[in-house]
């Protein structure tokens, strides 16, 4: 075990950095995607409702690994066949898109549930004062919804972080992929995967602790 740590620590830490980078990028886009589709779902416009539901159902109905293959291999092939010969996606780009789409669908559901958890009298009171729907959403409903959403969002954060390991299949050099390389080179599967597992665990446990603290602080301000 010590041999592996000694020899491969730089590689492992670099890979962990890539894992975190992929997670953060995906989450940022997922928040935007989630917010857009959540707002489509809670509004009264039937067409938007339909699009929102379709997106969530479609993405949640496809395993992440299939989505990753589709975006990394399938989409560039399709675009090339349209005549754009130079088109290519890096593993990071494809991975970010796949994860952001996947996480975005779950995020949309979290945000929708958060918005719906706010008493409808809040929207009515705001509208009765003359504020538009959008302004009421931004100033009255969402600030309250976010409080109830925070635990679920952090939970999703952790799931997404773990899901980055799935993207080892498209060759992105994140932690799991590097783990494969190291265990292949050293034949020390037990030690390698124990180390990789512990690295994930440290990051995730730290995150959950921070999450708990944020949650507690927000509840105190209530």
């Amino acid at each position: 075990m010590l041999v592996i740590i000694e020899k491969y620590s730089a590689m492992l830490l670099g890979a962990l950095g890539k894992t975190i980078l992929l997670t953060l990028l995906s989450l940022i886009f997922a928040m935007v995607v989630g917010m857009i589709f959540a707002l489509m779902n809670v509004g009264k416009n039937r067409v938007f409702n339909f699009i929102g539901t379709l997106y969530v159902d479609a993405v949640r109905g496809v395993p992440l690994i299939v989505l990753a293959y589709f975006i990394f291999f399938g989409v560039p092939q399709g675009i090339k066949s349209l005549g754009f010969q130079d088109f290519r996606l890096t593993a990071l780009q494809a991975g970010t898109i796949a994860l952001a789409m996947n996480c975005g669908a779950y995020m949309a559901e979290i945000i929708r549930a958060g918005i719906e958890s706010v008493d409808k009298g809040q929207m009515e009171a705001s509208r009765s004062l003359g504020l538009s729907y959008g302004k009421s959403m931004r100033k009255v409903v969402l600030p309250q919804a976010i409080r109830t959403m925070i635990p679920s969002i952090i939970n999703q954060f952790i799931i997404t972080l773990k899901d980055t390991s799935i993207l080892s299949v498209i060759g992105f050099p994140e932690l799991t992929n590097i783990g494969k390389t190291i265990s292949g080179n050293t034949f020390k599967s037990l030690q390698t995967w124990a180390i990789v597992g512990i690295m994930y665990m440290i990051v995730i446990v730290t995150l959950s602790r921070v999450a708990k603290r944020i949650e507690r602080r927000m509840n105190r301000g209530r």
């Binding site: 008493d119 009298g121 809040q122 009515e124 009171a125 705001s126 509208r127 009765s128 004062l129 003359g130 504020l131 538009s132 009255v140 309250q144």
Partner: peptide, 17 residues
Amino acid sequence: NKVRENIGMVFQHFNLF
């Protein structure tokens, strides 16, 4: 929205923010 500015409303359950 403009008309509503001119009509105040008070609710049974207050609906304070």
